[in-house]
Amino acid sequence: MSLYYLSKLMFDLNRDEAVKARFAEDASRVVGNYALTEEERGAVLDGDIGLLYVLGVNGQLLMHYAALLGVEWSDYLQRMRDGVKQHGPVRAGIYALTTSPDEKVAG
């Protein structure tokens, strides 16, 4: 589990224009600079919001990464629910799902 570095990558991508530009050019090279597990690496490279959520990325980082990928708000919420259905409950962090994966709260 290298959630800290996965989160750090999200943080850098959200906040640093140079990292963002390098990521757009060659994502796997940027991702290679962070000590991630294969699963984490794959989740980033696939833009798999649901899996990133389940891995425990803080929502305040993940929602901006989703926006960066062009994922609209309601779709972002749905992808996290789908992630829990597919991969099981959130494994770490303080952004766990508290309702049923089939529920829709708002938006």
């Binding site: 929502g59 305040q60 919420l77 996290m80 829990v84 799902l97 508290t98 994966p101 709260v105 938006g107």
Partner: peptide, 10 residues
């Protein structure tokens, strides 16, 4: 509140 989770709006 539960912002930026799927429960956003709770």
């Amino acid at each position: 509140h539960w912002p930026a989770t799927p429960d956003s709006g709770r």
